[in-house]
């Protein structure tokens, strides 16, 4: 089992999720898919909002930040079972050719990860201008499910529609997927935008996110991890927690704390300030997490 203290010392960038005690989640009484028989401890790493291709004063180290993140994950004493990037892999561009160039460069950089189980979802910067066409050429479907050691993972695409909607078709797909699960199944949802109205004044919302939450609410053990807002944030919708990850390009201000959602300025005295990583350790009790924040160093 991973030594948590080693993990804290070595991880340098990004959001890190540590899940433990999964064996507590038993197969549902009705025999439907749930966690259980194969459950064992593991952790995965969540990285978000890398915005490859961005350049500007908010991050003069933009060309090296993603590579540092990859190196930090590779330096973990015990490698995660998988890594997931929760959107805005690249910074947007109007030029389709340049978009593909950025996606290809991103793909090549993260290919250096020791972990070969790497998953992706798009952000609006990757997918909104062409409805996910280029993204899918490189990374496949924009929404999908997978199962790992007793947890059912669901990824939702709320960015390929530039209006920030999941859409009725995908919601129907979600409903169908959930029907196969026991009500006590351990479920993790990955998405880019928040599924709740965090701060619509800054477009921090999913227009039909409430419909997805309505479908998830009957399930007892659901946790949502997302990105988009470039900072740590925690919110409860009833019994369902939502955890936002920090960015790997620049931090954004707290919702409503300033007139515009402009990036927080780079602090030369404290490089990478605000890009520290989040560690979340899942306790054996459903939906209980211990969370710690660490800063990152320039070297």
């Amino acid at each position: 089992m991973t030594n948590r203290r080693d993990f804290l010392k070595l991880a340098g960038l990004g959001g890190v999720v540590f899940a433990s005690g999964l064996s507590r989640f038993a197969i549902g009484a009705d025999g439907k898919h749930a966690s259980g028989a194969m459950a064992e401890d593991f952790y995965f790493v969540q990285l978000s909002d890398t915005h490859w291709g961005f350049s500007g004063p908010p991050n003069p180290e933009a060309k090296s930040t993603l590579k540092k993140a990859v190196a930090a994950v590779n330096s973990l004493a015990t490698q995660p079972d998988f890594v997931i990037f929760t959107g805005d892999l690249t910074h947007t561009t109007d030029d389709p050719k340049e978009r593909r160039k950025r996606l290809a460069e991103f793909r090549d950089i993260v290919a250096e990860l020791k972990v070969k189980q790497v998953r992706y979802i798009p952000g609006e910067h990757d997918a909104s201008l062409d409805k996910g066409e280029a993204y899918q050429e490189f990374f496949g479907n924009t929404h999908y499910t997978f199962d790992h050691k007793g947890i059912h993972f669901i990824t939702l695409d709320n960015v390929s529609d530039p209006a920030g909607r999941i859409g009725d078709e995908q919601l129907a797909w979600l409903e169908g997927d959930l029907k196969a699960l026991a009500k006590d199944a351990k479920i993790v949802v990955f998405t880019h935008r928040p599924l709740f109205d965090l701060y619509p004044q800054w477009d921090w919302a999913t227009r039909d996110g409430a419909k997805a939450m309505d479908l998830l609410m009957p399930y007892q053990n659901v946790t949502v991890f997302y990105g988009h807002i470039h900072q740590e944030h925690h919110h409860m919708t009833g019994h369902i927690p939502h955890h936002a990850a920090k960015s790997l390009i620049f931090p954004l201000p707290v919702a409503g704390s300033q007139p515009k959602r402009a990036p927080l300025p780079w602090d030369a005295a404290q490089p990478f300030k605000g890009l520290g990583f989040r560690e979340v350790e899942a306790d054996v009790k459903p939906n209980k997490f211990d969370i710690k924040e660490l800063t990152i160093k320039a070297s």
Binding site: T92, L129, P162, G164, P200, Q201, D203
Partner: peptide, 11 residues
């Protein structure tokens, strides 16, 4: 706010 993503600068 503009709530339809329109490119780099939408924010």
């Amino acid at each position: 706010v503009c709530d339809v993503f329109c490119g780099s600068g939408h924010e």
